[in-house]
Design a binder for these strands. Structure first.
Lengths: 226, 226
DNA sequence: GCGCATCGTCAAGGAAGCATCAAGGCGCCA
DNA sequence: TGGCGCCTTGATGCTTCCTTGACGATGCGC
């Protein structure tokens, strides 16, 4: 569930936003001025911030600058002012989008979804490393190393291992492996599994005939043991 | 200098946009329909695309989908339609921002700047310089040097190296390289990869037949090793 | 203990991918 | 318009990888 922080000083509007957002499946937190908004952002770690520029204490652009000092969370700015430079200023200060009042709720929702999606694109490529025993699996590089030493894998071997690694500690069924590595047509070619499991073991295990990492569950599938 | 591709079928508006953008320091290319827009994007490699939804041949959302198939370049959508779902649809399809006609030129400029900034944040955590072993890669100048000595690269060689450098330490798939360097049509021309990988190695490596920087992962792609 | 299904291992042939050299063609600039 | 740089394409030899088959080992139910 995505988390959103709404910073708005008008109680009626803030409540309306919160209701609509919760109905759309968001986890919502509301702040009614700039200062509490900044501290809420620090504690709540929202996926996106909806910031009204017309705040009583701080100028909206100051809040924006305060956020940008330490986080790159997407910020969508909301404002009644139809003209004027603050719109431009907000975008240049690092706002991700800008919506003017009055606005349509579904358009606002779409812009928030877009902002979250962009934020996750920026943040997520850090899915890159996993340690399993003496193995170090690097998803970005599609490489695996044992005790710091790189082990060369073929594309199919890597696809097999990656699937197990993304489900480390969980049993992955024979059928799922075949479908995801070789394609849905190969769902019955269980021989492939044995050949490639053996190849992986020869490369990864200290004692390939008594595997510690790549464990078979007869008739079911394989598990990468943590 | 930032590059922008304007896709708009109204000659008067397109010209006005081009003039204003060039005055603001952009390098501008204009396409007058969806198809030529898509092919222009493949060749021109813009930093941002300004897309008018009211095109004669393709629906604007089709153009957007066509772009999103192979690139994450920021797209700002321009439309006369004040209401209606296409606004929401465009944002959900992967547009980065949305501006309705009539619009203020300076607001549009600000949104374009913001879009480019976000795109660059996503694409290149490092804006200007990168050291890899004895190599020094300067993104701003599009130059690479080894032990302080400049190495001349052709445009295609540079595009190849730049892509790897922006993902240094990460494996870049064959398909992604082909799409981003040569365009989506060339996604299967793996021969190009070998020719240009060899050329880069001859220029960059001490021992081109035992590469230290530009490493092949057979069947997968290439990595620039840090 | 026997049979059947499943698993592990080894090996070989062919397909796909890679590295390299080189020549033709195209556009661009002097 | 001639030369040059660059991109494209082809040919060749080599390496790597996938697929497939054969055979023995293991485990479970009857």
């Amino acid at each position: 569930m995505n988390k959103i922080l709404v910073i708005d000083d008008e109680p009626a509007l803030a409540r309306a936003l919160a209701v609509n957002l919760r109905a759309a499946g968001w986890e919502v937190e509301v702040a009614h001025d700039g200062r509490s908004g900044l501290s809420a952002a620090a504690g709540f770690h929202p996926d996106v911030v909806l910031l009204d520029l017309g705040l009583p204490d701080l100028d909206g652009t100051e809040v924006l600058a305060g956020l940008r000092g330490w986080t790159s969370v997407p910020v969508v700015v909301l404002s009644a002012r139809q003209h004027g430079d603050d719109k431009i200023e907000a975008l240049d200060l690092g706002a991700d989008d800008y919506v003017t009042k009055p606005f349509a709720m579904d358009e606002l929702m779409a812009r928030l979804r877009a902002a979250v999606r962009r934020g996750q694109e920026t943040a997520s490529p850090q899915t890159s490393n996993l340690s399993v025993g003496e193995l170090e699996i690097d998803f970005a590089r599609k490489r695996v190393a044992k005790r710091g030493e790189d082990i060369r894998l073929t594309p199919t071997e890597w696809a097999f291992l990656e699937l197990l690694a993304r489900n480390v500690g969980r049993l992955v069924s024979r059928e799922q492996i075949l479908k995801e590595v070789w394609g849905p047509v190969y769902a019955k070619e269980t021989h492939y599994l044995r050949v490639y499991a053996a190849q992986l073991r020869r490369k990864l295990e200290d004692d390939p005939s008594h595997p510690r990492y790549l464990v078979t569950s007869s008739g079911l599938g394989y598990t990468l043991e943590p």
